[in-house]
């Protein structure tokens, strides 16, 4: 087996097969497993996907939301066991791959048009 194939086969054990189709502009809810004093619980985090990075096992999404008036962006490693679930709540219409322009916008201007041609 060639080197790259070997690496892919090692990664394959850790890849999730049940990830939904996520596109830039979607509104998603991500369940993150948090450990607090020996206990585990799942904390939901909801926001807009403003960037995606494909990289096999290193695939990430950047989710932006406004929390208490402050913009918060979290990067989730999709195949990480700490990401318990990802639900797509709403499909958004985006005309570019990275929505970093949303960082400069406030309030109503941050809305994205909903698109209905992709199923949730």
């Amino acid at each position: 087996m060639k080197g790259q194939e070997l690496l892919r086969s090692i990664e394959a054990e850790y890849l999730k097969s049940d990830l939904p189709d996520i596109y830039v502009g979607d509104t998603v809810r991500v369940g993150v497993i948090i450990q607090e004093g020996g206990k585990e619980r799942t904390q939901p985090y909801e926001g807009t996907v403003i960037a995606m990075r494909n990289g096999g096992i290193n695939e990430t999404i950047t989710v932006r939301r406004i929390f208490q008036g402050v913009g918060v962006e979290r990067v989730f490693l999709l195949h990480s066991p700490r990401v318990e679930y990802i639900k797509v709540l709403r499909r958004g219409k985006a005309r570019r791959a990275k929505l970093f322009y949303l960082r400069d916008r406030v309030g109503k201007a941050t809305r994205l048009k909903q698109r209905f041609d992709r199923s949730i």
């Binding site: 080197g3 090692i10 990664e11 096992i57 490693l77 990480s80």
Partner: peptide, 14 residues
């Protein structure tokens, strides 16, 4: 050397 990648530990750390 074959190359580098990442794996996840039992507690979920990459």
């Amino acid at each position: 050397k074959v190359g580098m990648t990442q794996v996840f530990s039992e507690d979920g750390a990459a």
